[in-house]
Amino acid sequence: MNDWAKDRCADPEPLLTLADEYRSSLFDPIGRKWWGDGTPLSKTSLIVDEYVEGGHGTMSVNETDFNRMIEEAKKGCLVRVHAMGDGTVRSILDVIEKVRTLDPNNISQCQQIAHCAFLRDEDIPRFRRLNVVADFFTSYILP
């Protein structure tokens, strides 16, 4: 888990163990929320091209997190990732591609990337192919 998720959830692991207890016909805590990056505003989103001021920014997940996403997806957990930068989106799509390759039957599990503020043209078809919802959220851009 990213550190800054802790403002909402001091320790997510007990929540995971509680998920079955709280699961009902109306509420299904089946997803795992990841903060894949921050925002371009503070250059904490990974961008394929450089920012105007230079640099590519950064992601807030690493290889360990990617492996955990894959492991949890294999168990049926839905991967839901905040990703603003096109570089971050691409990396998460790579992770989901790996999930699909390891278990082609997993394709029915619809994964989700939230915001997608920047996308590379070549990555757009991958959403459909990998059954990933691009959960656009544009209102933050508007004044």
């Binding site: 990213n2 998720a5 997510p12 709280y22 509420f27 299904d28 997803g31 795992r32 929320k33």
Partner: peptide
């Protein structure tokens, strides 16, 4: 806890897919 309470009271009128951070 709120989702559970509302469902027990018959006031939860949605299907919700939750994600844990």
């Amino acid at each position: 806890r709120v989702y559970q309470k509302m469902e027990r009271e018959g006031n939860l009128n949605f299907h919700i897919s939750g994600s844990i951070p």
